[in-house]
């Protein structure tokens, strides 16, 4: 499953991942007739992974409607097309397409855009793992050590929830984390999905805690402190992902709800790879305090 959805690839049956309980099914089908320039309203035009990417839609709008059409194009690689609530995504390979690039852009970017616009999930820029069936998130600015720490936890046997795009949703006042895909990229190479993780998380679970990583001097103590109020909210907002301008009020309100319901901590992380085990132990013990000896 990817983001707790079964993905059906009529053209690539080898991409099918193991079945289990899922929120739904998405059909990902090839469609030669997709025109990357078909839609007049360009929402995003930017460089991502050294490629120009574009998100366009068929109409001007305040809030997306169910039948609104979208095209996400990665220059020279692929175009994805869908309707807001269509339940399927069509794609067309362009000149430089390959199976690996297809899956990278689908899992890493197109699906998060699809789920965000359909308001199925809200995303955070975070790594996440499980500690004894509790999902904890790691957030940090770019080059803040998030991937390094996530990778270390994986090496220690913790299940991977996500290494980059954390899909979340709220139900009955509880905020849940959704496992993204079973690939992990503990290096900076563009357009690469990464290693397939041997131990991916499979269950949607409540978010137990969020740790905001603060890089510190290599000799500094590892300190965990709870965040409150405006500081907590602003740190979460810094780690926002897929925060489209047409959804800003909803996204901000969602973050405030998340901040009010989920504990958020800042952790001082010494800038020393030799001390990663100490950081690991500190977070594990903070999440699951050792039983006190009687």
């Amino acid at each position: 499953m990817v983001y707790n959805f079964h993905l059906l690839f009529p053209n690539f049956p080898q991409f099918f991942l193991e079945e289990s309980d899922a929120s739904g099914t998405l059909v990902i089908k090839e469609e030669e007739g997709i025109d990357p320039l078909a839609f007049p309203v360009i929402l995003i035009y930017q460089n991502n992974q050294d490629r120009n990417v574009t998100l366009a839609t068929d109409r001007h709008f305040d809030t997306p409607t169910a039948d609104q059409e979208w095209i996400f194009t990665v220059e020279n690689v692929i175009s994805f097309a869908w309707k807001t609530q269509g339940g399927e995504i069509a794609y067309r390979f362009l000149e430089e397409a390959s199976e690996d690039l297809f899956r990278f852009w689908l899992y890493h970017i197109a699906l998060p855009i699809y789920f965000s616009i359909a308001q199925i999930y809200k995303f955070l820029h975070a790594g996440a793992i499980e500690i004894e069936a509790k999902t904890v998130l790691f957030m940090a600015p770019s080059f803040g050590g998030k991937s390094t720490l996530t990778d270390y936890f994986l090496q220690k046997g913790h299940p991977l929830v996500t290494d980059d795009k954390m899909a979340t949703f709220e139900r009955d006042g509880v905020y849940y984390a959704v496992p993204s895909h079973p690939y992990h990229r503990p290096f900076r190479t563009v357009e690469v999905l990464g290693h397939e993780c041997a131990n991916p998380a499979s269950q949607v679970r409540p978010i137990h805690a969020i740790y905001i990583l603060e890089k510190s001097d290599p000799t500094e103590d590892i300190v965990i402190r709870p965040l409150k109020g405006i500081e907590k909210f602003s740190r979460l907002h810094e780690g926002g992902e897929m925060n489209f301008s047409f959804f800003t009020p909803q996204y901000v309100s969602y973050l405030a709800g998340l901040a009010n319901c989920v504990p958020v901590y800042a952790i001082r992380v010494p800038h020393d790879l030799e001390r990663l085990e100490e950081v690991h132990r500190a977070i594990v013990n903070h999440t699951c305090p050792p039983q006190e000896l009687s």
Partner: peptide, 24 residues
């Protein structure tokens, strides 16, 4: 319309989505 009021813990803050700034 870009100014949004949010309450987090016991703090009230204004968020201006036009410039991304917070005001407690």
């Amino acid at each position: 319309s870009t100014v949004l009021l949010q309450c987090v813990d016991e703090e009230t803050l204004l968020f201006n989505s036009a410039n991304g700034l917070f005001f407690a």
